[in-house]
Every structure is written in C-alpha cells, then in structure tokens.
Amino acid sequence: MSDSTVDADEVRHVADLARVDLDDEDVGRYADQFADILDHFETLEEVPDVEAEPELVNVMRPDEVEESLDQDEALENAPETEDGFFKGPKVS
C-alpha cells in the first residue's frame, strides 16, 4: 500500500545531510516508521491549489548600533574558547 519506499540507504543519506550519526538498529527502525509517516504525509497531494494573499511582508529598516551581550557573556556557554573566540573542530 505504500508508495513511500524509504530504504536504509535513504535514511543514512538524510542522516548524513542532517549531521546525525545513526547505528544500524536506528536506521532499520527509522526506515519502518518513516514509511508509515510519509504515507500519511502523501495525503497532502489531494490538497487543491489555494489562492492566498501572503500574510507576511518584509519590513526593512536601517541598521542601528545598540547594546548587546558583551564578548564574555556570549562565550559563557561555549565548551571551549581561545583568545576570546569560540573554538570548534577542524574545518578540512
């Protein structure tokens, strides 16, 4: 009954895009659950085109300098910092 064949490779691909490590057990379980859930999402194909005015519009203003967190406060929660900067893993 399902058009949504989500195989293990597809789950791994999406997990890779989302930067989430999964073990094989997770992959199998998610593949089963995603098939059910995506089947339900596919009912959206029956939704007619709707003519709607956009509710939100972009509002622009010039930038202004205001008070904000100082550097120490901004770094308070970082697992590691160096010379007043966030420290992250190697970008290679």
Binding site: A15, D16, A18, R19, V20, D21, L22, N77, A78, P79, E80, F86, K87, G88, P89, K90, V91, S92
Partner: peptide, 24 residues
C-alpha cells in the same frame, strides 16, 4: 553543534564527524 553552547563532540577529526557525534 556543540561549539557555541551545548555538549561538545570533541576537537579530533573532521568537523562534520564531531557535529554528527554530539548530535547522535
């Protein structure tokens, strides 16, 4: 991603691996 806040995935290896590990 464990850089500005939250649990760090460590500083070894490549950044994508470090992010994917802490998120997992």
């Amino acid at each position: 991603d464990g850089v500005r806040y939250g649990e760090s995935g460590g500083f070894e290896g490549n950044w994508n691996e470090s992010f994917a590990e802490t998120r997992a």
